[in-house]
Simulated scan of single mutants.
Amino acid sequence: MPQVSGGKPVDVIRVAGGRSFVGTDRPEISQDGEGPEREVTLADFGLEAQTVTVARFAAFVAATGYVTEAERFGWSAVFFGDEAHLKSAAAIGSNLPWWHRIDEANWRQPEGVGSTIHDRLDHPVTQVSWADANAFASWVGGRLPSEAEWEHAARGGARKRRFPWGEQEPDDQTILANIWQGQFPNNNSLVDGFERTAPARSFQPSELGFYNMAGNVWEWTRDTFRVRSLSKQARLRNGQALAHSEKVLKGGSFLCHISYCYRYRIAARMALSPDSAASNAGFRVAFDL
């Protein structure tokens, strides 16, 4: 579908570039390629303060007629943690029994038929693929951030910190982001007040003014997923596709917990096929300056 420009950036924060780094020498999940720390040099760039909301994505669709990949496929991935859903829906894979293939799940009805976006227009849009995110970014004159840009913005520059707010570890009582509270995956205590996504401008912003760069939704970047710390043989053993077709997502989501998915740290990352979508994945837009 031809791209139609006309959208406008929202709350773009200028981030000074220069010498920086990506990754960490203190990896928690080494098979994800969190380390080693690598030096990079970045140009100045802009990054929106928050993830793209449902309302903004709806405006994009209304203006362009864009149809997302999940809508074209007719299904998408949805998290279910209670026993009723576990019995009534087909699990996508045996390794992740809480993820289910739900017919007609898409950005308009993120959990499938019967779900709605009307009460979460200010929440991050979800059920969008890498291509969908790129299409929106082009519409507003931007692009997806690189992994290095995303980390640099989340850290507030070339400084070493585990989370956007510093080193303090969130837990079931210390609520600093929208992550899982309770025992994953069957007991969500909802201490933070959110069963799924939170509004895009929830919680205290970082010192540069960015919201929710830890938790809430995974964020697509423009980069291809690679694990540089592993040999070719090790990548094969770990199931890393040598074609490197998967893309990098950053930030973790409302499903992350230190006991299961300790990926709401800045250096953490996830790989996902670019045509995939999920009920905990969104994006924010970067700009060349």
Rank of each mutant, 00 (worst) to 15 (best):
G93F: 06
S94M: 09
L96Q: 12
L96V: 14
W98R: 04
W99E: 03
W99H: 04
H100A: 08
H100Q: 11
R101L: 11
E104N: 15
N106L: 04
N106Y: 05
W107Y: 15
P110N: 09
P110W: 02
E111G: 10
E111Y: 08
E111L: 12
E111N: 12
E111M: 11
V113L: 14
G114T: 09
S115R: 07
T116F: 11
I117N: 12
R120I: 13
L121C: 03
D122V: 08
H123Y: 14
H123G: 03
P124R: 05
S129M: 07
D132I: 03
A133L: 05
A135D: 02
F136T: 01
A137C: 14
A137P: 01
S138P: 00
G142N: 06
L144F: 08
E147L: 02
E147C: 02
A148M: 10
E149K: 04
E149A: 04
W150Y: 13
E151Q: 15
A153F: 03
A154K: 01
R155E: 03
R155Q: 07
R159N: 11
R159K: 14
R162D: 12
R162F: 00
F163S: 01
F163R: 00
E169D: 15
E169P: 00
P170Q: 10
P170G: 07
D172I: 09
Q173N: 14
Q173E: 14
T174D: 07
I175W: 05
A177L: 08
N178P: 03
N178R: 04
W180T: 02
